[in-house]
């Protein structure tokens, strides 16, 4: 489930990246992060399948819920890393302008 959620996040972020009009949102690292994690979890799944066999495709409900929660948390963490990086890089210069304006008013 974690693999599936991360793959969906990777595909969606790639489609958004492809349709972007400029690089202001700095989406590149976000999709690389999701694709990297997807590949790594894919390898993990192959090894788990080799160990468990067909049982791998019939997880317990509790495991599905836990993995879904983990997958969503991973996607959220990726988004947080991306948005923090975006604010630090400040490609549109908005944060810089706000900080200068605030300094003038204080």
């Amino acid at each position: 489930m974690t693999l599936l959620i991360t793959v969906f996040a990777a595909v969606i972020s790639t489609v958004i990246w492809y349709n972007r009009e400029n690089d202001d949102m700095k989406l590149g690292p976000l999709l690389f992060m999701y694709w990297g994690a997807s590949i790594m979890w894919f390898v993990d799944a192959i090894f788990e399948y080799a160990e468990l066999g067909a049982e791998y495709f019939a997880p317990a409900l509790e495991d599905i819920i836990n993995d879904t929660f983990l997958g969503l948390s991973v996607v959220a963490l990726g988004l947080v890393i991306w948005v923090v990086r975006l604010l630090i890089l400040d490609p549109k210069g908005k944060i810089g302008r706000i900080l200068i304006r605030d300094r003038k008013t204080v």
Binding site: P29, M33, W35, A37, I39, M40, V74, L77, G78
Partner: peptide, 16 residues
Amino acid sequence: NLLLGGAVLLAFEHVW
């Protein structure tokens, strides 16, 4: 980016 991004998200899974 692929390697570090994947490693960071997997590290989170290990913390989990």
